[in-house]
């Protein structure tokens, strides 16, 4: 096992402040390096994680990120689950459109993050929260 990173168990990082977004980025980077993702794939995954962690903080009112190293038998990868119990996303299709934003951003967070990863899954319910799962596989 690599020091500090238990590849078996997922690691959880709370997202309560600006600095936690930085911590999520660093944690994702460490796990992605351990999973032997290429430099470009690491960069894509960390960028996607940064966008989604910020969304969790701003729109979800805080939550958590769960980072795990995964293996599907053929390749290794990194899976991250962002969860919050905020207001949820009323219109998911609209939220996934480039340039759509309610928070004054560029509107690329959700749609851009989806383009940067291999698997992207959103479960959301108005008033209950949002749970976004992303996975990046090694090439």
């Amino acid at each position: 096992m690599t020091a500090g990173v238990d590849l078996g168990a997922p690691q959880i990082q709370a997202i309560r402040s600006d600095d936690d977004v930085v911590r999520v980025r660093q944690l994702v980077r460490t796990v992605a390096v351990a999973a032997k993702l290429s430099l470009v794939d690491q960069t894509k995954l960390v960028t996607a994680a940064s966008e989604l962690a910020r969304n969790t903080l701003i729109y979800g009112g805080g939550g958590s990120a769960e980072v795990a190293s995964v293996d599907d038998g053929r390749r290794r990868g990194v899976r991250i689950v962002f969860a919050d119990s905020g207001p949820g996303i009323p219109d998911l299709d609209l939220a996934l459109t480039d340039g759509y934003t309610t928070g004054g951003g560029l509107g690329l967070g959700l749609s851009g993050a989806r383009r940067l990863v291999d698997d992207f899954d959103v479960v959301t319910a108005v008033g209950e929260g949002t749970r976004i799962t992303i996975t990046k596989w090694s090439r």
Partner: peptide, 14 residues
């Protein structure tokens, strides 16, 4: 700007 960053930005749509 690093190559990996530039590639990611293009994919992100920025």
């Amino acid at each position: 700007m690093r190559p990996a960053v530039a590639i990611t930005l293009v994919e992100l749509g920025l």
